[in-house]
């Protein structure tokens, strides 16, 4: 599904990713862990195609296609979804309006018929109640004044609504209370399917208890420095990054 080879990427002329390679197959869930500033969010932005994040060498192939050639919204329409570490506030734009606009834009791009207001509302409501996102929140401007946890829940709601093929979750667990963490994990697990893959960026082993990953990668200074199974997350929790980072250097 996703094949990253020797990826170098720079932000504002500063190289952040320095030779990162990673393969994720359909049906798999991979966790990415690593110290602050190691480049996890940068990787997620590069995958989503954010302006200013420049691939200087290496390649990213997504379902056989060169990702670099696609605009962010094309990537979205092709099934790449990024739940952001810091979801953005858009004043004046009602959450529901936003969801409808995005859902229909993706459907249009895929040649599917657009949904009317009621159609969108029905789909949103079904997911919203599972994730405890209230109707009142849907009527408010997107993310404006939402608490940290509410923003994260809304990201997962969008993931559920858009049914992406490759979901990247950038620290979706931080800022969530325990109940919300379970809700989010359930939402993610419900989406696990043979044709889907997920990249879960997290600092905490706790999330990985609920979403058991197939592989765990440790990112440090822009490269993967260690890989392993779910047990690696436990090891990190116990020992921290220092040893791994040092032995990699």
């Amino acid at each position: 599904m996703l094949e990253i080879k020797d990826l170098h990427a720079a932000v504002d002329g500063k190289e952040i990713l320095k030779g990162l390679s990673l393969t994720v197959n359909a049906g798999e869930v991979h966790a990415i862990m690593g110290p602050n500033g190691s480049g996890k969010s940068t990787l997620s932005y590069v995958l989503a195609g954010r302006a200013g994040y420049k691939i200087t060498s290496g390649s990213i192939r997504y379902r056989g296609e060169d990702l670099a050639a696609l605009a962010p919204e094309e990537r979205a329409a092709k099934g790449i979804f990024l739940a952001m570490q810091y979801p953005v506030e858009i004043p004046g734009v009602t959450t529901l309006t936003f969801l409808k606009t995005a859902l229909n834009a993706q459907r249009r791009a895929r040649g599917e018929s657009e949904l009317d207001a009621m159609g969108v509302l029905k789909r949103v409501r079904a997911r919203a109640s599972e994730l405890k996102v209230s109707e009142e929140m849907l009527k408010r401007a997107l993310n404006v004044g939402f608490s940290g946890g509410e923003k994260k829940r809304l990201e997962i709601l969008q993931m559920a609504l858009f049914e992406p093929r490759l979901a990247i979750l950038d620290e979706t667990d931080s800022g969530l209370d325990i109940d919300a963490l379970k809700l989010v994990a359930e939402g993610v697990n419900a989406l696990r399917a043979p044709e889907r893959a997920m990249l879960v960026i997290t600092h905490y082993q706790r999330l990985l208890q609920y979403i058991v990953p197939d592989r765990v990668h440790v990112l440090s200074a822009g490269r993967i420095v260690r890989e392993g199974g779910p047990e690696l997350a436990h090891e990190l929790e116990a020992k921290g990054y220092e040893d791994i980072v040092r032995s990699a250097a």
Binding site: A71, P72, R75, F81, I90, G92, V93, A109
Partner: peptide, 22 residues
Amino acid sequence: QLFYCLQRGINPEEAVALIVNG
């Protein structure tokens, strides 16, 4: 804001319209 919209599949023109609307 623009990137957030694009990431959710909204094309730039529509994204700007949406944000200006807001």
